[in-house]
């Protein structure tokens, strides 16, 4: 399968075989194969919106396979502040690197970037739209834990309206034989067009506001943060924030073998006491960002076949 030059923009663009291929390559990287494969390659890491783990994980992934990176970590310091358009920024930077990872507050920014360059563009999050590399590391983590994605009952909890990770993840899970449980306040339900997408793909899903309605049936609970910055109205934020807090007491009422995932950073939606339980896999999940992004960087630059 040839990924050289391919953009990683949205789960919408993927075939199941392509997802499986990336996960397989990530396993190989984690086993220690493909070392130094990115030697001589340069990543431009363009973060027009604050990020810690995604940016550092891309940069670490590049460095650990022998490549180099440069980038924008603070949009205030870039020439976009002088009124340069995104496309001009991309056209210019394309001459300096082999691959670009971009995070941007506007939905569609990664796709618009890909329109103007032959260099592969990796979407590291575009507004509330997509975050495909997070999804691939989520899938990798689930597969690592359960051996397969098929046959699982997966709960998505929290901000399903604005949370781009759950949008990407639910699209990816539509390739597998899973049952989805959407657990959110009414105000933060999954947008209708994603729900429609799942229906069109024949995926069974249940919507509920109460985690205890479904908690005994779940193999995985994917918790998301309710993000303050997505709310225009702070009163609305206060109304829903913290309404789904996972602590030992809540955990006790869920399936004993449930695995708790979270894209991080968390605020207070998972209590620290949960970290030490066998149920918590969110730090392993974050660490899997490295092999998965290494595999992606290697594949799109042609360094890994």
């Amino acid at each position: 399968m040839n990924f050289k030059g391919k953009d990683i923009i949205s789960l919408r663009d993927f075939k199941k075989e392509e997802i499986e291929y990336i996960l397989q390559k990530a396993s190989e990287v984690k086993e220690g194969r493909h070392s130094n494969s990115l030697k001589g390659k340069v990543l431009a890491s363009l973060f027009f919106e604050p990020s810690t783990r995604t940016r550092l994980s891309f940069e670490a992934a590049m460095t650990l396979l022998g490549g180099n990176f440069f980038g924008i970590a603070d949009p205030q310091s870039s020439s976009t502040q002088k009124g340069e358009t995104l496309k001009d920024t991309i056209k210019t930077i394309s001459g300096y690197c082999d691959v670009i990872a971009i995070r941007h507050p506007f939905e569609g920014a990664a796709r618009a970037s890909a329109d103007v360059t032959e260099i592969p563009i990796i979407n590291a999050g575009d507004g509330s739209n997509q975050h495909p590399t997070q999804t691939l590391l989520d899938l990798y983590t689930i597969k690592e834990q359960f051996g397969s994605l098929d046959g699982l009952n997966i709960g998505l909890l929290g901000d399903l309206k604005y949370g781009r990770t759950v949008h990407s993840l639910s699209m990816a899970l539509s390739f597998y034989n899973v049952k989805l449980f959407m657990i959110s306040p009414e105000l933060l339900k999954m947008p209708i067009h994603y729900a429609q997408y799942l229906e069109n793909k024949g995926i069974k899903y249940t919507e509920t506001q109460n985690i205890f309605d479904v908690g005994q049936d779940l193999d995985i609970l994917y918790v998301t943060r309710i993000q303050r910055e997505r709310f225009g109205d702070l009163q609305e934020y206060e109304k829903v924030a913290g309404s789904y807090k996972i602590n030992l007491e809540v955990l006790d009422k869920l399936n004993k073998k449930i695995k708790i995932m979270h894209p991080l950073p968390r605020v207070d939606e998972i209590d620290d006491s949960v970290d030490k339980t066998d149920n918590a896999i969110y730090f392993e999940q974050a660490h899997n960002g490295i092999p998965v992004r290494q595999a992606i960087l290697g594949l799109v630059t042609g360094a890994i076949q």
Partner: peptide
Amino acid sequence: PTCVTNNYRDC
């Protein structure tokens, strides 16, 4: 309103 096409003149 936060689509890239509404925020850059060349999109």
